[in-house]
């Protein structure tokens, strides 16, 4: 034994260091605790409860562990349809929102008369409740609605199209979602566009780069972080889409995972509803991780 080891008690232990931290930051810890206890308690506990419930016997639980609920769900035609529909709607709506959001954001960077009014109008959908946004789409997409009327007036179709019937309704749901949240995507992308230094464009112009080249070589690469956050934020929400199919009145005929889970719960099949939500959780996690991975590696190689 050396003296160094003997004087060890003088160096602060982990416990006393923690105590010192608590003493120094006691005020902050007291302030923060309710917020974090509530947020994590009310999300982690129910999510765990759901995951456990999914591995129990249908319809209401017991007999853990059991794969019976997953078996039931996978063999259910409605579930398989909901799974595919969720994927299609998510990719369609997020894709459309990105393209349209980018177009509107690019328009917004230009100066023109009435830009302030245009901005205010563009933000309008953010203030409209989701259910209202979806139900408003009904007047337009009903077979006796305004879209068919407009298409007939333009001589594009002769017979009304039933936009609310599967599989066209998938597109309608995506459009409904797109109308509501494109402004949000636009704001995220606009923030990204505004952070690109204008010197880059000027330099490129001096070097003779055209509009398309500037967009392709400057705007898109530098906008990548903004695009990534828009895709992740929107992707998570789109996977959980619930109000739009309900508000369009196609909750039964065009099932998505959230509405399927709701109807299972409604007929007191708790375990299959829980299994559905767990599958949805895994889908979200896998997609987000994959996307961040791919977007991240592209950044390094490109």
């Amino acid at each position: 034994m050396t003296t160094a080891q003997l004087v060890r008690p003088y160096t602060p232990s982990r416990v006393s260091r923690a105590a010192a931290f608590v003493k120094r930051h006691g005020f902050e810890i007291v302030l923060i605790t309710p917020l974090f206890v509530y947020v994590f308690g009310t999300t982690l506990v129910p999510v765990f409860a759901s995951i456990l419930l999914g591995f129990q016997n249908p319809p209401r639980g017991g007999g853990f562990p059991s794969l019976e609920s997953y078996n039931l769900v996978i063999q259910d035609y409605q579930f398989v349809s909901a799974f595919i529909n969720t994927l299609i709607i998510t990719f369609t709506s997020v894709g459309l929102e990105l393209i349209l959001g980018l177009i509107v954001a690019l328009v917004m960077t230009r100066t023109f008369r009435g830009r302030g009014v245009f901005r205010a109008i563009m933000l309008l959908p953010l203030g409209i409740p989701v259910v209202v946004a979806a139900s408003n789409m009904r007047y337009i997409f009903l077979s006796s609605g305004y879209l068919n009327q407009a298409l007939i007036d333009l001589n594009l179709i002769s017979q009304p199209i039933d936009w609310l019937r599967y599989p066209l309704a998938l597109f309608t749901v995506a459009i409904s979602d797109m109308w509501k949240v494109t402004p949000l995507v636009m704001l995220i992308l606009l923030a990204g566009l505004e952070s690109i230094p204008s010197e880059l464009y000027e330099a490129a112009q001096v070097d003779g780069a055209g509009v398309w080249q500037r967009f392709r070589r400057i705007t898109l690469p530098l906008l990548k972080p903004a695009i990534t956050s828009a895709v992740v934020i929107r992707g998570i929400d789109a996977f959980r889409i619930f109000a739009h199919p309900m508000g369009l009145g196609v909750g039964r005929t065009v099932p998505v995972l959230s509405t399927f889970g709701y109807y299972e719960y409604q007929r007191v099949y708790y375990t299959t509803s829980a299994a559905t939500s767990t599958i949805l959780l895994v889908m979200i996690l896998v997609t987000v991780l994959l996307y961040i991975r791919i977007a991240g590696t592209e950044e390094i190689t490109g």
């Binding site: 947020v39 009310t42 982690l44 506990v45 129910p46 759901s50 998570i236 959980r240 829980a274 959780l281």
Partner: peptide
């Protein structure tokens, strides 16, 4: 916490 499916939280609640 916003990543979790709301139906997975709403069901046990």
């Amino acid at each position: 916490t916003r990543m979790y499916p709301e139906i997975g939280i709403a069901l046990p609640v």
